[in-house]
């Protein structure tokens, strides 16, 4: 029982990363109906920005200027990281997506993919191939609850991703901006006629999605403190899987699907030999989508697909 419970805790934590990344992914996806294949690499950029900000702030302390407590460094890192990564996201939108708004969606997906590769290699070319270690800002404490090991980082990550999920859901549903975003998801060509500044909204959406990626990146750095230029590539593809598994136009669904992906991956490894993990996990996803072709939480859109 504790054995199983331990796996549930593990799956929750791992799923929360998929959820966090899928959340940012689905932000762009459900509003602009764009595959944001640069998202995984924006996540990487966010993690690196977080790394540099936090190292810088910690250096301030060792240099004797101002010694900041670790929690403050973490908060500042998150705020600055979100802001800077949002700028990066807006840049990506401006360069790669805005010129292609009327093009087939898959073309925009390709520019995203290419921008992602540019980020990876640029990082490699500028910073070298060295792995970087994210400074531990949270003192890890392990709690034993009924034989199950839980660390404070795990709890924190799960809680934060749940909170962000809810906050984002409320934002999209309750605010005027959110309403504009949802409207854009329905028809991007009519919305400007209603006086919605579509360029601003698109940039905002990207900023928001990228800021979420930065949060994911920074917490990822806390939980898995080895950073390298290609860290976002595979995660980006998996976020794509989660976001779409959740269903079109459902931010909450995307996050839940992220958790589900985590659960599938972990429990397949538990029940079957772990070498077969990808084989079984992705066959399952293939089957799920075969029988639920609109994702888990998506509405069956009759709107014409722009592809």
């Amino acid at each position: 029982m504790t054995y199983l419970l331990q796996h549930v805790v593990n799956a929750l934590q791992w799923g929360s990363f998929y959820a966090l990344i899928a959340l940012g992914y689905s932000m762009v996806y459900s509003v602009l109906m764009l595959f944001n294949f640069a998202h995984g690499d924006i996540f990487m950029v966010g993690a690196y920005i977080g790394l540099f900000v936090s190292t810088g702030l910690l250096l301030l302390g060792t240099a004797g200027a101002v010694t900041l407590p670790n929690w403050l460094v973490l908060v500042l890192t998150i705020i600055l990281g979100m802001a800077l990564t949002a700028v990066v996201g807006m840049l990506v939108e401006r360069v790669g997506y805005r010129p292609l708004r009327k093009a087939p969606r898959a073309s925009a997906a390709l520019t995203g993919l290419m921008i992602g590769i540019t980020f990876q290699t640029l990082n490699l070319a500028l910073l070298g191939a060295k792995r970087r270690s994210f400074p531990a800002l949270i003192e890890t404490a392990t709690y034993q609850v009924a034989g199950v090991s839980i660390t404070n980082t795990k709890i924190m990550i799960v809680v934060i991703s749940l909170l962000l999920m809810l906050a984002l859901d409320q934002f999209v549903r309750r605010t005027k901006w959110g309403m504009a975003m949802r409207a854009m998801a329905v028809d991007i060509f009519v919305v400007p006629l209603m006086g919605v500044p579509i360029n601003t909204m698109a940039a905002l959406t990207f900023a928001l999605g990228s800021a979420l990626a930065a949060v994911a990146g920074i917490f990822f750095g806390q939980a898995y403190p080895v950073l390298e230029p290609y860290m976002g590539a595979l995660l980006g593809w998996k976020a794509f899987v989660a976001a779409i598994l959740g269903g079109r136009g459902s931010v909450l669904g995307a996050a839940l699907a992220g958790f589900m992906l985590g659960f599938i991956e972990i429990f397949v490894a538990v029940v079957f030999p772990s070498t077969l993990r990808d084989l079984i996990a992705y066959s399952a996803i293939l089957l799920i989508l075969t029988f639920r072709p609109y994702g888990l939480f998506g509405e069956p859109y009759s709107a014409r697909l722009r592809l």
Binding site: H7, N10, Q13, M231, I266, V270, P273, S274
Partner: peptide, 15 residues
Amino acid sequence: SFVTKDRDFSAQLTK
């Protein structure tokens, strides 16, 4: 076992 680029090994380690 796990797959290249995996970052979470908790399932395997728990086993």
